[in-house]
Design a protein around this nucleic acid. Structure first.
Lengths: 206, 206
DNA sequence: GTCTATACTAGGATAGAC
DNA sequence: GTCTATCCTAGTATAGAC
């Protein structure tokens, strides 16, 4: 141990480092949303960030770790978003707000798609404590609202809560948004409301 | 032109050829459902069929053509299924029957996932007449039922028909089924009914 | 920690004999 | 039309100088 006391604030150099890493992760997040893990190449990431590929590997030991960092980031953003919700709203409204936010993130091109079952990314994520902890925290929060909403009859009580949870996650990455946006006939706000409507109210008329 | 008249029936050799190609396409279809286009390798296909990779390329000029053949096949199966529906049912019931069938196909591991926006497969499909024609035919059929169902108030008339159509296509590949199946808590029949319910009736209680 | 240059591998596609 | 053997590109990862 050094006798010199460490500085209370991170050094300028460390701040630069962290800023660079944040820029990298942000780029990866966007590319994951655009093309998915397999189609995204490390060359591409390096070019977009504006550094050499070898430099990337000084920050992250593999492509999987690179992507995992972006996945941790989006889960963290989700947790932050949940924490910022007004605590006194009805559970069903909390859930609608969460889904609305996720749809907006997706339309902004910032929502990485769900890693497919046998992707090497899936294995990396399931071994990543930072990711798993956040995923569980988010799921617990949503699960609480789901059960509360079912108890007060705002969500169909015949549905297993886990099925509702999966449905919400899936809607956050729903390809329908991409299709509707490509059609170009509706504004982003309208697309969000359409998908929200089909998710909570279904296709059938009430 | 030969003076000899061609045989009215395809030769034994031609039948063998077609049978082999059908076996190939069936294998490709299964692998596309399991892993998707990018993760599926041609080596894998060849091994599963039990022939050399070079032989595959005698039948199909590229990996994209291989996959396209499987996509044409699933669209053809869809058309056949539509043709077999009783003509006198209500439009909403026709739509429910189609989605139920698609969900069953997915649970059977025979539904290739939607090709993502920038996949090389997408380009190949959009240049493939056999695929496009079938896609359009199916979409027209479904579109007719959607509008009829809206006219009689069985589907929410506030939804643009195209949004309903995209939603139905997306549900046919919904990752929720995979998740619920992996959970192992529900039978296949129950999973189908759950997803059908969330699709048509939504999450909110009636 | 950044770079240039390179090693290594997976995977799509082809040559050429039979 | 099937095979074995090979080519070639793309893409992950690393070496080594500064």
């Amino acid at each position: 141990m050094s006798v010199i006391a460490p500085p209370a604030k991170p050094s300028f150099k460390a701040q630069m480092l962290q800023a660079r890493e944040e820029a990298i992760v942000q780029t990866v997040n966007r590319l994951l949303a655009e093309k998915g893990f397999d189609a995204m190449t490390v060359d591409e990431v390096a070019a977009a960030v504006g550094i050499a590929k070898a430099s990337l590997y000084k920050h992250f030991p593999s492509k999987e770790d690179l992507a995992a960092a972006a996945m941790v980031r989006i889960m963290q953003r989700t947790q932050d978003m949940l924490a910022a919700l007004p605590a006194d709203a009805r559970p069903i409204d909390q859930l609608r707000a969460v889904v609305r936010w996720a749809l907006q993130v997706q339309l902004a091109g910032e929502m990485p798609s769900l890693p497919s079952q046998n992707s090497s990314l899936r294995a990396a994520l399931m071994a990543n404590r930072g990711y798993l902890d956040r995923l569980i925290a988010v799921s617990d929060r949503l699960g609480g609202w789901i059960q509360a909403a079912q108890a007060e009859g705002a969500i169909n009580p015949a549905l297993p809560p886990i099925a509702v949870l999966y449905t919400l996650y899936a809607r956050a990455c729903d390809p329908v948004l991409e299709f509707l946006k490509a059609g170009g006939q509706h504004s982003d706000e309208r697309i969000v409301e359409l998908v929200l409507s089909t998710c909570f109210d279904g296709l059938a008329a009430r």
